[in-house]
Amino acid sequence: MTRIDVGSVLRHSANLPFSDLVTRPTGAAVRRCIQTELAALSEGDVALLDFSHIGMMDYSCADEVVAKLLIALAGQDAHAGYIVFHGITDAHLEAIEVVLDHHGLALVVQFADGGARLVGSVSDEERAIWEMVYARGSAAAADVADVAGREPAEMARILESLLRRRLLRHDGVTYAPLGPVQ
């Protein structure tokens, strides 16, 4: 997994001695730098976007860095990379949740202990199925259908939707979380 330190990107791309992600021009500069790094990923690679060294983030920057990055990623071919967000705190979450909701987007946040959660615009059903796959480490549509007591075709449709939104990835014929599972 490739790690991208957003704090370091902020210092170098925007040439600013600050740790806060504020203003649209700053956000756009940071996003462009991250996109350059993501372009170097191999097919199906997962990048860990690390916000540990970021203080606070305003709405404009969240829109530029997070929302536009996810929108661009969703528009790419299926073999493009995946992103997991790390080091996200309440100081970032307020702005992130607002912009995700605005655009109907969602992302995966991974915690230091290896746990993960979905943040953003997902239905209760999508969240439950995502958590089921995450808990099992990997699952086929039939496995999920068995546990949920639902039709496999219905589960496959939701899993494919999570896959298209890059919240899950393929692991052979099964669906898998983006990050490591503990």
């Binding site: 806060d20 504020v22 203003t23 649209r24 606070m56 983030m57 305003d58 709405y59 404009s60 309440d90 100081a91 307020e94 702005a95």
Partner: peptide, 16 residues
């Protein structure tokens, strides 16, 4: 405490 971050965000957006 979460009001503090929101305050800085609000100030940032107002200035922008």
């Amino acid at each position: 405490s979460r009001a503090t971050m929101g305050f800085a965000m609000t100030l940032s957006e107002a200035c922008q």
